[in-house]
Design a protein around this nucleic acid. Structure first.
Length: 206
DNA sequence: CTAGTGATTAAC
DNA sequence: TTAATCACTAGG
């Protein structure tokens, strides 16, 4: 019996929220059917104290969701062709989000393969933030939806916590500043995690 | 390695 | 108004 993630789990801070999201399932209704992935790679972003964050320079129309209540989907468009999706964290008024970087398809595999026909291996179906967003149909229309509501087209189901010794932490991918912060978290050994970054094991923050 | 693509933002 | 940047991916 799986239940929706409690938004309170995302309200305290972005690092515990990111760690909590690992192992959770994202389930999305697409025109081709429902697809679900188990999250294996995420990155935390905060507000004014995080120069790598979209919300570093204050609230704009694009990043407004990051400033709203926890548990909402923040979808943005990058490089003229891709979408990436985050889940907002921290209470209303404080900016924070966790970028959904990669997942393993849990169901329905046939639907997922049909949605991403160019993926050569199943592990590539949601390996990378834009691939994950594409697979799950996370576009502009999904910006702002409450992923903690059963009525939403995109839902996060609480998964079992990933044990601390299975979590790898490392620097965030593709960020120019704050390279030193190990705010990227992944599940050790998952084939869906992007490979070319070493990470060091760190105890799960809580 | 590089091309592809367009929203967003800061600077003028 | 214009120009630089960009939390990326697919194909050599």
């Amino acid at each position: 019996m799986t239940s929706l993630l409690d938004p309170e789990e995302l309200a305290t801070d972005v690092l515990p929220a990111a760690v909590r999201l690992l192992g959770c399932t994202v389930e999305a209704d697409t025109p081709d059917g429902t697809v679900a992935v188990r999250l294996v790679e995420v990155e935390a972003y905060r507000g004014a104290d995080d120069p790598a964050s979209h919300s570093y320079r204050g609230r704009t129309p694009r990043n407004a969701v990051m400033f709203g209540p926890p548990g909402r989907l923040y979808v943005y468009f990058v490089y003229g062709m891709h979408f990436c999706a985050n889940v907002s964290c921290l209470d209303d008024g404080e900016a924070g989000a966790v970028l959904l970087r990669a997942g393993e398809v849990v169901s329905d595999l046939d639907v997922a393969r049909r949605r991403r026909p160019t993926a050569r291996r199943d592990a590539d179906l949601a390996r990378g933030p834009a691939r994950l967003a594409s697979l799950l149909g996370l576009t502009r229309e999904r910006n702002g939806v409450d992923v903690t509501s059963a009525a939403s087209p995109v839902r996060v189901l609480a998964g079992p916590r990933v044990p601390a010794d299975r979590i790898v932490a490392g620097p965030r991918v593709g960020v120019a500043s704050a390279r030193d912060l190990p705010w990227r978290f992944s599940v050790a050994g998952s084939p869906a995690v992007s490979p070319y970054r070493p990470g060091r094991v760190r105890p799960a923050t809580r």
